[in-house]
Design a protein around this nucleic acid. Sequence first.
DNA 1: AACAACATATTCGAGCTCTGATATCATGCG
DNA 2: CGCATGATATCAGAGCTCGAATATGTTGTT
Lengths: 166, 166
Amino acid sequence: MRKPSPSSCLPGPPSLAPQLPEPGEAKRGEQGHLGYLLRQASVALRTRMERALADLEVTPPQFVVLTMVGAYPGLSNADLARLSLLKPQTVSVIVGNLKRSGALVSRPHPVHGRIRQLALSETGERSLARCRRRVDALERRLAAGLSAAEEAAVRRWLVSVALESD
Amino acid sequence: MRKPSPSSCLPGPPSLAPQLPEPGEAKRGEQGHLGYLLRQASVALRTRMERALADLEVTPPQFVVLTMVGAYPGLSNADLARLSLLKPQTVSVIVGNLKRSGALVSRPHPVHGRIRQLALSETGERSLARCRRRVDALERRLAAGLSAAEEAAVRRWLVSVALESD
DNA sequence: AACAACATATTCGAGCTCTGATATCATGCG
DNA sequence: CGCATGATATCAGAGCTCGAATATGTTGTT
């Protein structure tokens, strides 16, 4: 048997005994703060994606970079940063790990002396294709319970949150 | 003047010249993958929250932990992990930083020898209150452009994504 | 030509998050 | 009692993310 978690019976303030809510209840459910719900959903999806890609040795951020370089070969580090809403330093770490693992290659820009242009290697192409299938499977389940109108509303909201200016 | 980004004129494969999409266009807009849009929105909100809380020396994850401990005093590290969908090690890092900064205090559980119960310190209470106001302001803008029905759909979807089982 | 302004890349330090492994405590069973 | 099981805490290592600072390259102005 399982004891009902020691902290469920608090000895401190009597009236504040924590009746811990289950996932989907109280602040964690549909009544919670929108920002909190957004973070929760994002954490859950990231976790699922990490598990789905774990045996391919690719992390979710790496998958995003691979996808972008696959779609726009010749991208620079700075281009990737703008495209992903991340900082150049962040992209630099991810790109570094992908170059070390052999999925990405870079060569200097023929005109501009400082820019390094990125492209997928052979193994990078294959890896991206394998990841793509796993992620697409997850993706399909995301829209499962939504009507067309609801999905449109969700998409519109997500874009508006992403683009809201400071 | 600003040159239109060197990588916009690729010398490599001619037909693959990257016409980089603006934020809100192409895959980044409402036609993109739901998972990608969710990540983008989450990144954007996290960034805004980081900026809003920066001068209070509190990070978004720290704010989440402070809020939870404020709502349920006596929580343990493991309780927090379950509540936040994070791993105990992760929560341990955040709690460690909050204890070091003096916002959280912990005492051993009176019955169970290993559990450490958490509570807000005086400064923790004040800090949480200040953060609360900033975050509430951000929060209100999240639901700004949504009708009641749309907001309900968004909330329902976020919860379903967060709770979807593997 | 010299300079200012800007973009790009990189380094450093900090915080967040995970997997995996280890140690301690509590409970239940032989 | 002794041991297995499970919960808790913690350590080690890896990757992601940021702000700040530095160095280098490009462009436009003087």
